[in-house]
Simulated assay, not measured.
Amino acid sequence: MTRTSASPKAFTHDELAAAFQTFEQTVDRAAKTQDWDAWVAHYTDDITYVEHAAGTMHGRDEVREWIYRTMTVFPGSYMTAFPSLWTVIDEPTGRVICELDNPMRDPGDGTIISATNISIVTYAGDGKWSRQEDVYNPLRFVKATLKWCRKAAELGTLDAEAEAWMKQYGDKKTS
């Protein structure tokens, strides 16, 4: 059953947990394959996606365009997974609140460099999510990315795309 704002029906803890587990599995596959269409399919057609650095997107097409633009270039393309570190299931609102880790690929010596964000996703029923908001400090992501670039440069694994990003955003010591 799809929930509307006028519907008094709340989703059960089990339903929310199962839907979120499926959502996380889909995100994991997308991170590994860079095929984000299945992830976008978990949203309602009229999804509202609030991304504090990129703005608010409305509808699957806007979300799809943004995620491909973001995750197919450095640094997004170097993020290997998005596991939740913790989750809270809020049955009365149909929301799942979680902290997501955003680790980058190994620069060459096993180092794990990442930044986290808080995501709030609102369930609409039938395996679909009607709203997502990602809350984070963009500067923490810049610091983590620069740290990764410096480590890769030190190890001789910094490729041209990452080097260009580092030159554009400056390699000021930020950590």
Rank of each mutant, 00 (worst) to 15 (best):
M1S: 15
M1D: 14
T2Q: 11
R3S: 12
A6G: 10
A6M: 09
S7Q: 11
A10V: 15
F11D: 13
E15A: 14
Q21K: 10
E24Y: 00
E24H: 02
T26A: 04
T26V: 13
R29E: 11
A30P: 01
Q34G: 01
W36Y: 15
A38Y: 03
W39Q: 02
H42G: 02
Y43W: 13
D45W: 00
D46L: 00
Y49C: 05
V50M: 10
A53M: 13
A54E: 10
G55P: 08
G55I: 07
M57N: 05
M57D: 06
G59P: 03
G59F: 03
R64E: 06
E65H: 10
E65F: 03
W66F: 14
W66K: 09
T70V: 08
V73A: 09
V73P: 02
P75A: 05
S77C: 11
M79Q: 14
A81D: 15
F82S: 12
E91D: 13
P92T: 12
I97M: 04
L100K: 09
R105A: 12
R105M: 12
G110A: 10
A115S: 14
T116N: 14
T116Y: 07
T116K: 13
N117D: 14
I118K: 05
S119R: 04
S119L: 03
V121H: 09
T122Q: 13
Y123W: 04
Y123S: 15
A124M: 05
D126H: 13
W129C: 04
S130D: 05
R131K: 11
Q132G: 04
Q132W: 05
E133Q: 13
D134C: 03
D134H: 04
D134Y: 02
V135N: 08
N137Q: 07
L139W: 05
F141E: 06
A152S: 12
A153G: 11
E154S: 11
L155I: 08
L155W: 09
L155K: 08
L158D: 07
W165S: 02
M166V: 02
D171K: 03
T174H: 00
T174K: 00
S175D: 10
